[in-house]
Computed example of a mutant assay.
Amino acid sequence: MFVQKRQISWLRAAVLGLAAVLVFSLAGCVAGGPAQADKQTYSGLVNATEVDVNTKIPGRVIKLAVKEGGTVKNGQLLAEIDPADLLNQKKAAQAQLDAAAAAMQKAGAGLQAAAAGGEKAQAAADVTRGTAGATLAKAQAGLAKAQDDAALAKKVYQRIDTLHRQGAVPEQQYDEAKNKLDAANAAVQAAEDDVAAARAGLGQVDVYQAGVAEASAAKAASQADINAARAAYNQAQAQLQEIEANLAQTKVVAPVSGVITSRNVEAGEVAAAGASLFTLTENGHNWVDVKVPETALGKIKLHQKVTVTGDAFPGRRFTGEVTAINKKGDFATYRATNDRGDKDIIAFDVRVELDDPAWWPGMTAEVAF
């Protein structure tokens, strides 16, 4: 619901004509007895602030809580718009919000799992790199020693073999040299196998590093899923908030205290967005607009207290306050003629605040300055 304020202008043309007639007929006359013999009285019409109570949302009016002429308080329920469509929209928006929240939670779990897998693979790679490196170094050292031993055993065997051919060494010594050479060569082969195994162990580091890269890609994908789910969640949340705000607008309430001066809709009718459902006149905020001739303006000051009377309140006097004096003349209350040779007398608008709920818009009031 939103409201539009405006000032009531009651029969402005009639005011102008009435003021033109009354300015000189009433100027200087007594208003209420000898105590006001030095005052001048002018007529005017009472005005007040009107508020158009509009509906922000379209829909069918299912309830009217007030009638024309009824007095209402600020915040009082005036009408209700059918909320059925909005309630269905709210249900759908809530479902979208819940789905987005679940997707965000699932993506978050995927991100945590990918992060844990990446950390595990990295730790394994680090450990393997350290142990396999040490193993390879040891195997390479062992291979170097085995090769040195095999080279020495070969030299010894060659020397013994030469002597054995010459018959200079017994058969047993020859066999021992031959066995040592065979053993040394076998040790070299075993050391080479150890080096190959150590190199294979280092290759496992690459496997683990591939696992780290795979986990990193999974983390990026999960983060993208989280971002998409969060965007969907925020969108659904904003939509839900808008629907809830519109649901609040289905209850049309009085923006100010006052009187319902016009009801512009009936129950069952479909109101368009922005349509005026009611016209509400504020209680207690009213004033009199009077036309004062320039010859009397010198006696009128801003914030001056004045006496206000009216035919609607015989014998009663009200106190008003001058709150505005228009600096631009409106029309001539008296026209000069060639015969008289005098000047026009221009009228100026003077506003007198009443702020009294007893006065209704359109009433005629007499203001004594």
Rank of each mutant, 00 (worst) to 15 (best):
V3I: 09
I8R: 12
A20G: 12
A20E: 07
V23H: 10
A31H: 14
P34G: 15
P34A: 15
T41N: 10
T41A: 11
S43K: 02
E50D: 14
D52W: 15
D52H: 13
A65P: 06
E68Q: 12
T71V: 14
G75A: 05
G75S: 09
L78P: 04
A79N: 01
A79H: 03
A79P: 02
I81P: 03
D82P: 14
Q89Y: 05
A95I: 00
A95P: 00
D98N: 07
A100L: 02
A101Q: 05
A101V: 05
M104N: 11
M104W: 05
M104I: 03
A114K: 00
A115W: 06
G118D: 04
E119Q: 13
A123D: 00
T128N: 09
R129H: 02
G130F: 06
A132H: 02
A137W: 11
K138A: 15
A144G: 05
A146R: 04
D149Q: 12
A150D: 10
G167D: 08
A168W: 09
V169C: 12
E171M: 07
A177R: 04
K180F: 04
K180P: 08
N185A: 07
N185R: 10
D193R: 10
A197G: 14
G201L: 00
L202H: 03
D206H: 10
Q209N: 15
A218P: 02
K219N: 04
S222C: 07
I226V: 15
N227Q: 13
A236Y: 01
I243D: 07
I243V: 13
L247D: 06
A248E: 12
Q249R: 07
V256Y: 04
A267H: 07
G274K: 05
L277C: 01
T279I: 04
E282L: 08
N283A: 15
D289Y: 05
D289L: 11
K291G: 11
V292D: 01
P293F: 06
P293A: 03
Q304D: 01
Q304W: 00
A312T: 10
R317G: 07
V322R: 01
N326V: 05
K328N: 11
G329P: 09
Y334Q: 08
N338G: 12
D342N: 13
D342A: 09
V352F: 00
V352G: 00
D355W: 01
P357D: 09
A358Y: 00
W360V: 12
T364K: 12
A365G: 06
E366C: 02
